[in-house]
Every structure is written in C-alpha cells, then in structure tokens.
Simulated assay, not measured.
Amino acid sequence: MKIKEIIVVEGRDDTTAIRRAVDADTIETNGSAVSKETLLKIKHAQEKRGVIIFTDPDYPGERIRKIVSDNVPGCKHAFIAKRDALPKNGRGIGVEHASPAVIQEALKEAHIMNETLHEEISVDDLIDAGLIGGPRAKARRERLGEMLRIGYTNGKQLHKRLKMFEITQKEFAEAINMILQEETDA
C-alpha cells in the first residue's frame, strides 16, 4: 500500500513501524518539543504532497498533534486505539507497537479535522451519555474515540473533537447505543 502524503510521526521507531506496514515517507518530530525547522518541513510537505499526522495515543502524542495542526492547517489525522499501541512487555505506548494491519487501517481511515465548528452535539449530550464525570466516563470516551475514529480525548476536548470531525447526532447516538449495549453484554 503506497501512501502519497508524508506521515508525521514522533520518532525513528514509529518510522520503522510505518514502513513495515506501508510504502510511505515520514517526518519525525523527535518528541513533543516540535522545532521551528520541523514545522517548516511539515508545511513544505503539506504544500507538495499533503500530510497525515499519526502520533501516539497519549498526552505527548496529542500535544504534538495539536502543535502541528495549529501551525499547518489542512493536515489529515490518523488514530489508533491505546490497546493497539501497547507493547508485548506492557511498557510504554506508541505507534511503533502497532501491527501492520492496525497501521494500514488507521491510514486508510485518516481524515481532515474541519476547523469550521458547528453545533450538533451539546455538552449536555456528553454528560447524559456518561462521557463526562462518572465512573465509566473515561472508558466510554476511549471506546467512542475508537468507534468514530477520532482518537481518545479527555472530557474537555471531546466536545471540540466531535465538532471538528463533524460527527452527526445520528453517528454519535449510534455509537453511544453500541457502547451501552457492550456494557450490558459484558
């Protein structure tokens, strides 16, 4: 599978994992302190071929994603679930631990975050669905992020992420119903 866009990753091990899964070029940020030089490279890549941001499903990965997308508009975003980013030894979390199939699927599903915010799903909807505050909120947000392919977010960021990806009320309701059904079946 050949990827036209250049993939922004955190480090060398991520590049190795990406190249095991697909034929693609990468730019490594080398950590969450993304340099001006790296941002200039990413801007140039976006102008020439397009960019997919593919960072780890953790706080530093989300920080890098935000820095890059704030500085380079129009990038696509690829996400993997935390459970798919865990190493066999249980230490750390990262794209480098994902299987080639998981990486291929995430890249196939990569999409652009729309910065034109529109109100469809309210904060009250999130509270009513048990996604903010409550004993199962974090697990539900994690599962929702997987199902809607928008990545994991904390309670504060979930509302913005749903709007940025233009998740409809219908998509949201269907995902929540599935999550609640899974909980009932468990």
Rank of each mutant, 00 (worst) to 15 (best):
F54K: 07
T55V: 09
E96Q: 13
T168V: 03
A98N: 12
R91I: 12
E166Q: 15
E28W: 10
L107R: 06
E142M: 08
I67R: 00
R136H: 15
L180R: 15
R20E: 12
E37A: 13
I112M: 11
G11I: 02
I112L: 07
G155E: 12
V8Y: 01
Y59L: 11
V51H: 04
E119V: 13
R63M: 08
A137G: 03
K36I: 09
N114Q: 09
V102H: 03
Q181Y: 11
V51T: 05
K170G: 05
L144G: 08
T55G: 06
D14H: 03
K163G: 14
A110V: 01
I7A: 00
Q157Y: 10
G92H: 13
D14K: 04
E62S: 09
C75P: 02
E183D: 09
I67C: 01
D23F: 03
F54N: 02
L40I: 09
I167T: 09
E174V: 14
R20V: 06
D58H: 07
H97S: 07
N30W: 03
E96P: 07
E120Y: 07
S99Q: 06
R49W: 05
I53Q: 00
V51P: 01
L117H: 08
H159F: 01
G31K: 07
T153E: 00
G151T: 05
V9C: 09
E105M: 12
E119C: 11
E115P: 04
A78R: 02
L39R: 09
G151I: 02
V51I: 04
V123G: 06
R143E: 14
Y59W: 09
L107G: 10
K76S: 01
D185W: 09
G31W: 03
M113C: 10
A85H: 02
E37M: 08
I64N: 02
I127R: 15
R161C: 05
E37C: 04
A45V: 01
Q169N: 06
D125M: 11
R149T: 15
I27R: 04
T15W: 04
T55E: 04
M164V: 07
M113V: 14
K4C: 08
E47M: 08
D185N: 15
R143N: 05
H118D: 12
R143A: 14
C75M: 00
M178Q: 15
L107P: 06
E5A: 11
M1N: 12
L131C: 05
K108L: 11
V123K: 15
V68W: 00
H118P: 00
M113G: 08
E115K: 14
L40T: 06
A175D: 10
E142K: 11
K88N: 14
S99V: 05
I53M: 00
A85M: 13
I150F: 00
D13Q: 12
E171T: 03
Y152G: 03
P73K: 07
E166K: 15
H44C: 08
P60Y: 02
A98K: 07
A98G: 05
E62K: 08
A186C: 11
S69K: 04
T26S: 13
I52M: 03
G151H: 10
I179Y: 06
